[in-house]
């Protein structure tokens, strides 16, 4: 499945923001989980990612855990969040 330009942008943002060593954009499958399994990110990464989304796209995530879990499920859901809520 082809990666969209926004997905690619998000992959680069994730690698740069979270200082992922030895990970390239190609290593991130848009449909694989970002957290725990899949890419293996942790709760501090979630906070860091939330901050990056705020800085780059002006998106402020609600503190309600379930919706954040859905937004952060994988790269596709993250891209959908950015597409629908970006301010810049």
């Amino acid at each position: 499945m082809a990666t969209t330009a926004l997905e690619h942008e998000l992959k680069e943002m994730i690698i740069e923001t979270l200082e992922l060593e030895d990970v390239t954009p190609d290593d991130i499958d848009p449909e694989e989980p970002l957290f725990v399994e899949g890419l293996g990110l942790d709760s501090i990464d979630a906070l860091e990612l939330g901050l990056a989304l705020q800085k780059r796209y002006g998106i402020t995530l609600e503190s309600e855990a379930e919706s954040s879990r859905q937004h952060f499920a994988n790269l596709k859901s993250l891209a959908a969040l950015v597409e629908s809520r970006r301010q810049k």
């Binding site: 200082e19 501090i44 990464d45 906070l47 860091e48 901050l51 705020q54 800085k55």
Partner: peptide, 9 residues
């Protein structure tokens, strides 16, 4: 500027 959680930790 907001604090980076990872750097703070």
């Amino acid at each position: 500027e907001p604090l980076s959680p990872a750097r703070f930790g």
